[in-house]
Design a protein around this nucleic acid. Structure first.
Lengths: 308, 308
DNA sequence: ACGTCCATGCAGTGACGCTACAACGACGGT
DNA sequence: ACCGTCGTTGTAGCGTCACTGCATGGACGT
């Protein structure tokens, strides 16, 4: 029973198909398919079943994929056992973050990690739909993701989440608006306004629905934009208001962030890691530094809009 | 990092050398040496160091070997995960036992396992020195071993022991002897007698020393014989007395087993299994049956000397 | 009904590990 | 102190196995 085949099975499950799994494993779909066939022959039971033009893991395949992560964890622990004698942690860690978190966290993270020495952090920015974050852990060691602060984490099964930051969602209004003068806003104050929301299915889209529900009506969404800079530009131009995270936005001079009261609105920022890569000493160090960076922001928020 | 190399490292540690490890792995010493070299190169630290004309694992190698068993356990658990869907446990299990336990346990074990169906038990008899039993688990799935009942188990690190039977040690005396009429014997009664003991370093050799210490003198050992049938023949011929386990001996008409009081003398029979093979469903079944057989003997001892 | 996408089978090729053989080093007996 | 022996380590040759590339079959959407 080959560990590479087990890893492949796990990738097929998390990626949802042979082709996608082949991509993250840097293989051809043919190789993946052959590995699955060999594994099923070795196991004695079918591990996958065709569904439509794709495939799905059977119950046995699912159980084996679960066991595969345990194998990967044990293997990584073995590597860590040698690394403990090999000296201080060294290597490269691939970190991915969605745009606003990348802007907020990565600069400080890179500085801190550089101070340690010997660790190379390869950054990337990826913002995907809520349920696609877990799959990113196949391509990156650490994935900074976000979700509505209320409710359970809801990341997939085979992924560990390290909480980084709880960020309140404020209401972004044009400075020229009457609402800009208020110290705080309640859901009732926002009935009938035009909203600029994020794309369907993306993180914190659900929060707007919750807030609007308190105001009694469904929100009138006039635009769906994911990039906060674009959102701020639209808000400043008077095209609507938006829910924006306090620490990651507010840089635009024509926009004012007004706290929202009467309803718990926030987003939770987590670092997602696969349990096996979490065993790597370097990854653990980078995770610690990332948590420290987030902690520093929580203590002394430095909105990008505040000069100096 | 190859799991086969990890398994090889573990075998080198338990067997104490490259050549011996190669034998149990069905490889040439050259292949083992190459695997160790590749593993050390991959780990970045030396895993072995020359000592005399053999070699020994370094601290890093020892830690990696420990991690290797975790990997093996995880892998075996993965196999078990499929086997759960594949149907009832099937396969072959290699069982080894020292002679007297083999005679006592294996016939019933084979009958019981045959009744289940689908499981092939490959038996072997191996009796080795006390500290060599653990290494046998590299060649057999289940190793039935024995040790003095008092004191801690003392089997190696990477092996799990399932207790099977605690067997009292009686004093085997010739039926013609004056001692044969006694209902019980105390250490003091045995001062000055000739002893027939087992070979140096073999199980329960220590017990005789303990008993003799109670009688105040060092025992006079006139013969060292491991096979109980030979021992009984010598005892019957009046060449000395011996400590023999109650359930596994006493078949000779010229020998009487007299209970020993005033001192706790017994041997403990354990089943030894490597933690990874313990994950195999078939092995677990055979272990259960083995424990049941031993339990049956404990409830209704059937000394081989009792006819019918 | 056609095009597209996805998974799968098959032949070719490249790399990797094992066997066989030779050499070096170390221990123990004489 | 020497030499025989045992055990480990290097090197060449070979076999095996897994991956790439291409062709096929099936399923969904237009």
């Amino acid at each position: 029973m080959d560990v590479r085949a087990l890893e492949t099975l796990r990738a097929v499950r998390s990626q949802g198909g042979v082709t996608a799994a082949a991509a993250v494993l840097h293989l051809t779909p043919s190789a993946v398919s052959q590995q699955l066939a060999a594994l099923a022959r070795d196991a004695g039971v079918p591990l996958t079943e065709r569904v439509g033009r794709g495939l799905r893991l059977t119950a046995a395949g699912d159980a084996l994929a679960d066991a595969a992560v345990d194998v990967a964890v044990a293997l990584e622990r073995a590597r860590a056992a040698c690394a403990a004698w090999a000296g201080s942690p060294t290597g490269s860690v691939r970190v991915s973050a969605f745009q606003s978190a990348a802007r907020l966290l990565l600069p400080v993270l890179l500085t801190r990690v550089a101070a340690i020495g010997g660790i190379a952090v390869e950054c990337a920015d990826e913002d995907v739909a809520q349920d696609a974050f877990a799959a990113l852990t196949d391509r990156h060691d650490v994935v900074v993701a976000h979700r509505p602060a209320e409710g359970d984490p809801g990341w997939g099964e085979g992924v560990v989440a390290v909480p980084l930051l709880r960020e309140p969602l404020d209401v972004a209004v044009p400075v020229s608006s009457a609402l800009a003068g208020r110290a705080a806003l309640e859901p009732g104050d926002l009935a009938g306004v035009d909203w600029i929301a994020v794309k369907e299915g993306f993180p914190v889209a659900r929060v707007l629905a919750d807030v609007a529900a308190r105001s009694g009506a469904t929100p009138r969404v006039v635009q769906r934009i994911n990039d906060f800079h674009v959102v701020e530009a639209l808000v400043a131009a008077g095209h609507g208001v938006a829910l924006l995270p306090r620490y990651s936005s507010g840089g635009h001079p024509g926009v004012r962030l007004v706290p929202l009261t009467g309803v718990r609105a926030g987003r939770q920022v987590d670092a997602l890691v696969r349990p096996d890569v979490a065993q790597r000493r370097v990854v653990a160090v980078v995770l610690e530094e990332l948590a420290a960076v987030a902690d520093g922001i929580r203590r002394a928020p430095a909105p990008t809009g505040t000069p100096g």
